[in-house]
Design a protein around this nucleic acid. Structure first.
Length: 120
DNA sequence: ATTCTCACA
DNA sequence: TGTGAGAA
């Protein structure tokens, strides 16, 4: 992978930053981790270290949850197009990903996408 | 000062 | 999910 991808998975932001950037509470961020929705690295102090890629995932997750999906459902969608880890993360972290996500949702067909209930 | 884990009025 | 205790 090139520098671009490396950095996307290198960012090491503390949970507080992620919380502000995603609008999710630290509690939720840790909770989502239990479902393998995100894979933050850990510092020696056992501190969670999120990458820019994780932020991207979190934002999508947030979107899906707002659309009425549950953790298990979101997880399934994520696993099908989340090559994250430290392999060959193609450059489909933003735009392309969004399209794929939408496609997945429509295919699985069951989550009607009428209105986004932003309740926060 | 921050974050982590665990458990619950 | 939120919140607080106790440790790192």
């Amino acid at each position: 992978m090139n520098e671009k991808q490396i950095r996307k998975n290198m960012a090491i932001l503390p949970v507080s930053s992620i919380s502000k950037l995603t609008g999710l509470s630290p509690r939720q961020l840790r909770y989502y981790e239990q479902f393998d929705l995100v894979h933050p690295k850990r510092s020696k102090g056992n501190q969670r270290l999120y990458s820019l890629n994780d932020i991207d995932c979190l934002l999508d997750i947030k979107d899906y949850l707002s659309s009425g999906m549950t953790m298990a459902e979101v997880k399934r969608v994520m696993l099908k197009q989340s090559p994250i880890a430290d392999q060959e993360t193609a450059e489909v972290s933003d735009t392309a990903a969004r399209k794929i996500f939408s496609k997945e949702m429509l295919q699985i067909g069951r989550w009607n996408i009428h209105d986004s209930n932003n309740l926060y």
